[in-house]
Amino acid sequence: MGAERQPLTPQQRLALSRRALVAQLQGDRPEAPQDELSALPAPAVRPAVYDHFAWSSVARGVVRRWWRRHPANAAGQLARPLLERYAREEPAKLVGAAAAAGALVVLVKPWRLLSITAVLAAVVKTSDVADMVTTLMQKNANPRKDPP
């Protein structure tokens, strides 16, 4: 067997992280070899609060499917390549535009213009909720088999 590896110190991990960030911002490939990066300990996975409920996986699946079919997700998927390229070329302008948009949303408070009923109608109308429910019922329906 090979020699056992000692985990990296926090200072070493910070140095690796800084090098990777600088390389990414300069558009270069990361300089750190894969074996250095693989020496980093894997982050601890903590169970979320909602993992204790039996129906949480079903609810998560419904929400994921709803979001995949939502028009806002489609618009985001179309805008992603443009935004990624713009973020590489002009990161300061992008951050400034995001800050301005956030300030505008806070000042205008568009959530006061819509009623809860209108928001719910838009959510149900834009996504095919009935189709999702039907699909979920078909997946979970187990035909009853009587013993011979």
Rank of each mutant, 00 (worst) to 15 (best):
M137D: 14
S17L: 11
Y50E: 11
R13K: 13
V108E: 09
K125R: 15
A121Y: 05
P110W: 04
T9P: 03
R68Q: 12
R68M: 09
R65E: 11
G27H: 06
M1H: 09
W67K: 11
D35K: 04
P33V: 07
K139H: 12
Q6A: 15
D128P: 05
L21V: 08
V105W: 09
R68L: 09
S127E: 00
A54M: 05
R13P: 01
S17V: 04
R60H: 13
T126S: 14
S38C: 08
R60C: 04
P71C: 03
P143C: 01
E4W: 10
R60L: 13
E4N: 12
S115Y: 00
A74Y: 12
G27M: 02
P147S: 12
G27D: 06
A32H: 01
V45A: 08
D131M: 12
R85M: 03
Q34D: 10
L120M: 02
E90V: 05
A42H: 08
L136Y: 04
R65D: 02
S56F: 03
A92R: 15
A75P: 02
H52S: 13
N140A: 13
T126E: 13
S38E: 12
P47H: 10
L83F: 10
A92C: 12
L104V: 08
M1F: 07
P41H: 01
N140D: 11
N142F: 09
A103E: 13
R64G: 04
Q6H: 14
L82R: 15
N73A: 15
T9N: 04
L8T: 03
A100C: 11
N140L: 14
D28H: 12
Q11H: 11
V129D: 00
V49K: 07
G102W: 05
K145S: 11
V62A: 06
P43D: 08
E36H: 00
R60V: 03
A59Q: 01
A3K: 15
A3I: 13
W67L: 15
V95W: 12
R19D: 06
V129S: 01
R5D: 08
P143N: 02
K125L: 11
R85I: 07
R88V: 01
R29C: 03
S56Y: 05
V119K: 03
L14Q: 04
E90M: 10
V22Q: 12
N73F: 15
Q77H: 07
A130C: 13
R112L: 06
P33H: 05
N140T: 13
R60P: 00
F53G: 04
V123A: 01
R18W: 13
V108C: 02
V124F: 07
Q34S: 11
L114C: 05
W111S: 02
R5W: 02
Q26F: 04
T135G: 10
A99D: 12
R29G: 00
Y86W: 14
Y86N: 02
K139D: 15
A48S: 09
V129G: 06
F53H: 14
A75D: 08
K125D: 05
Q34P: 00
A103T: 07
A130I: 10
